[in-house]
């Protein structure tokens, strides 16, 4: 049975993690590679790196980081933030990213989704959508949720699916940072209206919130940052609890060790 996915998100600025330096027992928690390794060994199903740098060297710094992450971890990861061209995507995928996410650039130039999907395949194209409710209607926002658009969340989501997106990462700006739970009603509508996987983002505070977003929100995956970074919730506790709630989850098998007779020869 396909499991639901738990995805820690790492915000990256100039090649370093932004939030949460004084947590986890890491030598250098500002090092995204070390943090990625920690999560991959502790049950994360996937990782998302969101680059928020604004410098001119950002492309090269990010490409270098992606290469180091790909060398180190054995689970899939997505890279997003400021990606606006086929060339950007090509560099990141060639350096070992499994998927890329596009956001504002897709709103400004929707044809980009078609180009990316036909060139690289839908399976590696995630469209991230930030939205919040204005007068009861979900409106897409740009630039990390700061700039409102006229686009309706559900119309835009259907359009990106039609254009070839393989997955949608939906962040509710109304819920993000509140720790009051995910936007389950909107998530359930997205999941029902569309036939591609939906990643829930924004609002994780408790284990119950994850249960709710998988059951009520019908989400295929749930993304969170600070609850994991500050060890308020560990991934293994969360997954055990979700399993008890009847949600399919992958647990790590710690017992697997290579014996002498099967060494490569």
């Amino acid at each position: 049975m396909l499991s639901k996915r738990i995805i820690p998100c790492l915000d990256i600025k100039n090649g370093r993690t932004v939030k949460g330096i004084n947590f986890l027992d890491l030598r250098d928690a500002g090092d995204p590679v070390e943090l990625a390794k920690f999560y991959s060994e502790n049950g994360a199903d996937e990782l998302v790196f969101l680059d928020i740098s604004a410098t001119e060297e950002r492309r090269k710094t990010l490409a270098d980081l992606v290469l180091k992450v790909a060398e180190t971890i054995n689970i899939p990861f997505t890279v997003g933030g400021g990606i606006s061209s086929v060339e950007d995507v090509e560099i990141l995928l060639n350096n070992g990213a499994d998927k890329v996410s596009v956001n504002s650039s897709a709103v400004k130039n929707p044809q980009l989704i078609n180009e990316l999907a036909s060139r690289f395949g839908s399976q590696c194209i995630v469209v991230a959508i930030d939205a919040k409710q204005i007068d009861g209607n979900w409106k897409v926002h740009l630039v990390g949720g700061k700039v409102p658009t006229e686009l309706d969340l559900f119309d835009w989501a259907k359009e990106v699916e039609r254009r070839g997106a393989g997955e949608i990462l939906f962040t509710s700006m109304d819920h993000d940072g509140t720790k009051n739970g995910f936007a389950n009603e909107a998530l359930a509508k997205l999941s029902t209206d569309l036939n591609i996987p939906i990643i829930a983002s924004g609002g994780a505070g408790t284990m119950q919130h994850f249960t709710d977003t998988f059951i009520e929100g019908k989400a295929d995956a749930a993304l969170a940052a600070s609850v994991f970074h500050f060890k308020e919730i560990t991934i293994s506790d969360l997954k055990n609890e979700l399993l008890i709630q009847g949600i399919p989850m992958r647990l790590m098998n710690d017992e697997r060790r290579m014996t002498n007779d099967e060494k490569i020869n």
Partner: peptide, 13 residues
């Protein structure tokens, strides 16, 4: 078929 979400993405047994 479209009875399931396509693509299948994630961890399966």
């Amino acid at each position: 078929s479209n009875e399931v979400k396509v693509p299948q993405i994630g961890w399966n047994q």
